[in-house]
């Protein structure tokens, strides 16, 4: 029986088709990944429960007005100075009487440690620019992160970021317990218009 050759399919246009698809994906693709400041909003409480009042010394008040000026603990301040001020407040290294109280707490890896009862209160005006708001949030987050890093390096010989990256949840939790990020946002006021 005579062998019948199956005619070969011409694959020359394969490259063209692939190129077409390639160009389509090249055009539609966006390589940028999304970065952002992660925050958790407080749940909305319908009926006001009376919370125990927080002592003045434990609260770090940051106000931002419609002219993008900052009032920190009653003093006018630039955004660039905010980080140091917040760090000083959160850690209260020299146990000053006008900075937050500390409470003895049992923390794994650290034993009994003095943990400050700090709360940062942030209030902005309706006319505050979003840029300033983010800069303030960023500086406050940076203050916490720097303190956490210093603590982690001292205790574990590795920075907090490295611990997070390594997925060492227990140590990360312990560091967070000493410097919990407490940024409270007050309901906005409409002043200065």
């Amino acid at each position: 029986m005579a062998k019948r050759d199956i005619p070969e399919i011409n694959a020359g246009s394969m490259a063209d088709i692939a190129f077409l698809l390639l160009v389509f994906f090249l055009v539609t693709t966006t390589m940028d990944s999304d970065f952002g400041l992660m925050r958790k909003l407080p749940p909305l409480i319908e009926d006001q429960v009376d919370t125990p009042p927080i002592k003045d010394r434990n609260v770090f008040v940051v106000l931002a007005n419609a002219n993008d000026q900052l009032l920190v603990e009653g003093e006018l301040m630039e955004v660039s100075e905010l980080r140091e001020a917040a760090k000083e407040f959160i850690a209260n290294p020299s146990n000053k009487s006008n900075l937050p109280e500390k409470k003895e707490t049992d923390v794994p890896f650290f034993g009994t440690t003095m943990v400050s009862k700090q709360v940062i209160s942030l209030q902005n005006d309706k006319g505050t620019s979003y840029d300033l708001y983010i800069q303030v949030q960023n500086e406050l987050a940076a203050a916490y992160n720097e303190l956490r890093n210093e603590l982690a390096v001292e205790q574990f010989g590795r920075s907090y970021d490295q611990l997070v990256e390594a997925g060492d949840k227990d140590r990360v939790k312990a560091v967070r317990k000493i410097y919990p990020q407490r940024i409270s946002e007050a309901e906005p006021k409409d002043v200065g218009r």
């Binding site: 925050r39 909003l41 909305l44 005006d125 309706k126 006319g127 979003y130 906005p188």
Partner: peptide, 22 residues
């Protein structure tokens, strides 16, 4: 301005969508 952003945040709190990223 923050006014509109705050309004949106309040709306998100109402529907319990609390995880946000700026």
């Amino acid at each position: 301005e923050m006014g509109i952003v705050t309004d949106v945040k309040q709306e998100l709190r109402k529907v319990q969508a609390l995880k946000i990223s700026y």
